[in-house]
Design a protein around this nucleic acid. Structure first.
Lengths: 351, 351
DNA sequence: GTGAAAGCGCTAACAA
DNA sequence: TTGTTAGCGCTTTCAC
């Protein structure tokens, strides 16, 4: 492997000049540049990223910390992040919240040791104090779909609003008793969606708190919650699930019981994972713009740490939180618009 | 950030000694070790990975090149790889075959520039000559589910055998006219599965080549292929699909047409992606041991490049290929056992 | 057993 | 504009 030194020698200049040429920093005369260029080509020189990393104290790479890569939402997010990082010329390290950290060492440590530029955290199963530590050490951070003490930039969807849209959609097609399969209260998006549901139905005559059934945000969780729901309220005619996986679980249970969707019970989920369009009947849902979330996450992270972003995000709605003192330094919570996707599971009923 | 120098100073020894202590190389007396230890603790010293990378000419990281991270098979594989890499203390860079490479620069270049230890390639959409180049440069490589010129270690399932098992299973439950939805012939596993199907049915009186319908290995591909199949052979009573996604596509089409599964048509896929257990009816399939594939890939890669593996892989069946001259240096193709998973889509029919 | 010193390949003052 | 040189933080001979 030729080094910058070889290039310098062949071009008859100093390594400093080659370095300047390479990084477009400082002055390099036209002719010198050409000589350097020629030498680089002749030697097939490739600057060594690790050496630059050492010298610059940064490696042009970021970490993405995910809770569970096999949950279909995250590959989508990862893909978006990866593509955007690629545009900046950055590498992406994928860390599994469960298997990493605790084991080898803390995230802060891993990030420092490797001169990473920061981390995108989408894992709700990382403790708040771990986040606090990272922030205390001034490690650039962006949180996706999880909250934290103020100051850390956060990206998430308009969960509450999305839930309201979903419920209104169910009402619009004629639903008269709408239940909600809710996720763990400890997971913010789940809590927000629950609240959105409440916003819409609390005042209705038919509403009863027992129409809300909690469970894990998984297919199994959705199945269990639906069983419980049907035991209590055999007469529901619509269900809003906290996410698509739960909705799919609900679908399975309804199907087994011979309850038709959407004729007997209309069903809507949240996220719009690819699976939603695959099940039968196809699942209506509230779409989160994963791709925007991923791109924005990278932009925010790298903007903070150094690079210049290249695009605007029209879908992003940076909001000021009046109770957040840090907002003086710019908004720290970005909420993205969501939209209802109507599919067969909420096809207007003809009764 | 304290450096090794600070540690040395505080401990009253030289940096060389600290380094030796850190890497368990060379002799360090009991007492010296204790002093160093104390200094490290006192300073909260964390060795810098990038600097070690430079000095060692290796960064303890590998690249994983995937064709499409949103295809549910790959997150599973990635997870397994990630967990195993973690055990070795290695980092994983995830590269998307489509978006990377061509763009920035070649894989070979990226791997060298970053002192990576090698790459696991699961992308069938990487050209053979790209692989050849990597190998020519002696970059450690392991291929998963894709073939290549000999010499490069390859991991895959017993696709042909699995296909035979699937078809035999269909026969065992009473199927009398079995069709096959096959993937692109250019993708090796797809070709092997097709061959396995042929092995079992070619001699049957009911067999006709038109029972094989090609398509993409996706849900859409499965749908299209099924449409075509039904047009030709409305009387098929069983379908073996080249992978689960295609099978799910078939399921959708059959469902729309009012054809019952498994009563009218039995259906079996291949891979056992999580989705298979989610659709209705649940999909029978041939299971590939993704987790073993991932672990083995990491082991082979790192064994070649340096580290010592820690476990055996009982499911792995290294096979010698008599026509492969390189097998003198050890087997280069590992075929993993597969098993039929019986679910509702092939429940024995009572006619 | 331990330390001095020369790298690993590149960047960035500071001079010239 | 360009070159000299001192790092970046760690590893590794090679003496002692």
């Amino acid at each position: 492997m030729p080094t910058i030194r070889d290039v310098a020698r062949l071009a008859g200049v100093s390594v400093a000049t080659v370095s300047r040429y390479l990084n477009h920093k400082g002055y390099v005369s036209r002719e010198t540049a050409e000589k350097v260029e020629a030498a680089i080509r002749a030697l097939k020189f490739e600057p060594n990223e690790v050496a630059r990393g050492l010298a610059n104290q940064k490696l042009n790479a970021i970490a993405v910390i995910l809770p569970d890569i096999t949950n279909p939402f995250f590959p989508e997010l990862l893909k978006a992040i990866d593509e955007q990082a690629e545009r900046y010329g950055y590498n992406v390290l994928v860390w599994n919240a469960r298997s990493h950290a605790s084991k080898r060492s803390s995230y802060a440590r891993m990030i420092r040791q490797q001169y990473l530029d920061g981390a995108i955290i989408a894992a709700h199963d990382i403790a708040e104090d771990e986040i606090a530590r990272l922030q205390a050490e001034a490690i650039p951070l962006v949180l996706v779909d999880r909250p934290s003490a103020h100051g850390v930039p956060q990206i998430r969807s308009r969960n509450r609003e999305g839930a309201r849209l979903a419920v209104r959609h169910l009402m619009a097609i004629g639903a008269e008793k709408i239940a909600h399969l809710s996720g763990p209260a400890s997971i913010l998006p789940a809590a927000e969606r629950r609240q959105g549901y409440l916003d819409e139905v609390e005042a209705r005559p038919w509403f009863a708190p027992s129409l809300i059934v909690g469970g894990e945000l998984s297919i199994e969780g959705g199945m269990a919650a639906t069983e419980a729901l049907l035991a209590r309220h055999p007469d529901v005619d619509a269900i809003f699930a906290a996410n698509d996986l739960m909705a799919i679980g609900a679908l399975k249970v309804l199907h087994r019981r011979g309850i038709r969707v959407p004729e007997d019970v209309a069903l809507i989920g949240f996220d719009d994972i690819p699976l939603a369009a695959v099940v039968e009947p196809e699942l209506s849902t509230v779409r989160q713009p994963v791709d925007v979330m991923g791109r924005l996450a990278v932009d925010l992270l790298l903007r903070r740490s150094n690079a210049r972003p290249k695009k605007k995000h029209p879908a992003a709605q940076p909001i000021e939180r009046p109770d957040d003192p840090s907002s003086a330094a710019g908004p720290s919570v970005y909420e993205l618009e969501v939209t209802v996707i109507e599919r067969a599971s909420t096809l207007r009923k003809n009764r």
